[in-house]
Design a protein around this nucleic acid. Structure first.
Lengths: 133, 133
DNA sequence: GCCTATAGTGTCGAAAAGGATACTGTCCAT
DNA sequence: ATGGACAGTATCCTTTTCGACACTATAGGC
């Protein structure tokens, strides 16, 4: 397969997994979708503030790709200073189970401590039970 | 964020989404996990046959990364010809909801027709109802 | 004696992705 | 008159990813 990932499309079982992944591939798409899902429509700089480490250029790029993929809509208001709203389309909304599964897995398995990303230890069943008790 | 994606780890809401994504990032990890989830333990060449377009070198690389991440185990049998089994660990198994959500989304939204990957049209509610009738 | 299967490794190069930095233009508040 | 907020572009450069291809070693079958 010498095609870029976004154009990956051989037919084989499991291909749907890859093609779905290709839509949220890109360093920031996951977070962008997550914020739009949990907070609703957001403006460019609102997104920027929520994803502090993305550069302007990358945020623009990822948003354009998501728009092209039909996952979000971009609404420009002809006012000054400029105003641009980003909102999920219904196809974007349909990704909610995926994003939320990722979020749940990340919450359970990863420690985002600000310096390193570390895996949380797996819990034995007894530990889980005592926590839920 | 000038770190590679695998080391992405700033603290912000939505970070769990990104860090979860970093585990299945890589052009073939999704499919590999999918096949191990649906078929159980597989040998190197069995995986290769299930993912026809991956090269040997890339399959090896992705498998090693998944192993390092603790998502699968690699068992070498000292026989000749060589035999190496790949199986999900329990942490790998814990990704099942994620992979299955991706699979479901892909099935519903993408047409893998072997030449192009195209988005299926969104269904109006009435259409869905008549299909389920 | 040659081919096949097994599970890789090594090297090379192209392409894609991502980051740093500087720049645009208008309005408003200070 | 200076600076900031807004939503971007443009240019350049580095890093990362991926693929092609060649190569390894051993046993068994024809």
């Amino acid at each position: 397969m010498s095609r870029p990932r976004a154009k990956l499309t051989n037919t084989f079982p499991g291909c749907p997994v890859e093609s779905a992944l290709s839509f949220i591939d890109g360093k920031w798409k996951g977070v962008i979708l997550y914020h739009l899902m949990t907070e609703g429509t957001l403006r460019f700089n609102e997104l920027r503030r929520r994803v502090p480490s993305v550069t302007q250029r990358m945020l623009t790029k990822q948003l354009r790709e998501l728009e092209e993929a039909g996952l979000l809509s971009r609404t420009v208001f002809p006012v000054v200073p400029p105003r641009v709203d980003y909102a999920l389309t219904s196809r974007g909304e349909s990704l909610r189970p995926v994003i939320m599964a990722l979020k749940a897995w990340g919450d359970k398995n990863v420690l985002c401590d600000g310096e390193r990303m570390t895996l949380k230890p797996l819990k034995a069943k007894s530990q889980v039970e005592s926590e839920n008790a």
